[in-house]
Amino acid sequence: MTVYVDFYIDTKTNEIHQFGCNHIPIEDNIYLGIYRNLEVALIHAKSKGFINTSICNSCNI
């Protein structure tokens, strides 16, 4: 069974966070979409123009 998760991007740090991460800022975030994992979210973020995007270390477990 494939699980899809909501992802957000922090507009100050350009880090991608998955829903439930303690490091998602209350402000300065953009909803990125629903993806099956962080790697797919990263690819989609870069295709949407967030070139210097990285993955949150806490989410990347």
Rank of each mutant, 00 (worst) to 15 (best):
M1A: 08
M1E: 11
T2A: 10
T2I: 08
V3D: 12
Y4M: 09
Y4Q: 05
V5S: 04
V5K: 09
V5L: 06
D6R: 03
F7A: 10
F7E: 08
F7K: 13
Y8K: 01
Y8P: 00
I9F: 01
I9C: 05
I9Q: 03
D10E: 04
T11H: 08
T11A: 09
K12E: 06
K12L: 11
K12F: 03
K12P: 00
N14K: 07
N14A: 10
E15Q: 14
E15L: 13
I16G: 03
H17K: 02
Q18W: 00
Q18G: 00
G20A: 10
G20Q: 07
C21R: 01
C21F: 04
N22R: 14
N22Y: 02
H23K: 13
P25R: 03
P25E: 06
E27L: 11
N29G: 09
N29A: 04
N29H: 00
I30S: 14
I30G: 00
I30L: 12
Y31G: 04
Y31N: 01
L32W: 05
L32P: 02
L32K: 15
G33S: 12
G33H: 06
I34Q: 13
I34K: 14
Y35H: 15
Y35I: 02
Y35M: 05
R36L: 03
R36D: 02
N37C: 14
N37F: 01
A41I: 03
L42E: 08
L42T: 14
L42V: 11
I43P: 09
A45L: 02
A45N: 08
K46P: 15
K46V: 15
K46M: 06
K46E: 05
S47Q: 05
S47K: 14
S47L: 13
K48V: 10
G49H: 11
F50W: 15
F50C: 13
I51N: 10
I51A: 02
I51F: 14
N52C: 08
N52D: 04
T53D: 07
I55T: 11
I55D: 06
C56P: 13
C56W: 04
C56F: 06
C56R: 00
N57T: 03
S58N: 11
S58Y: 15
N60M: 05
I61Y: 15
I61C: 11
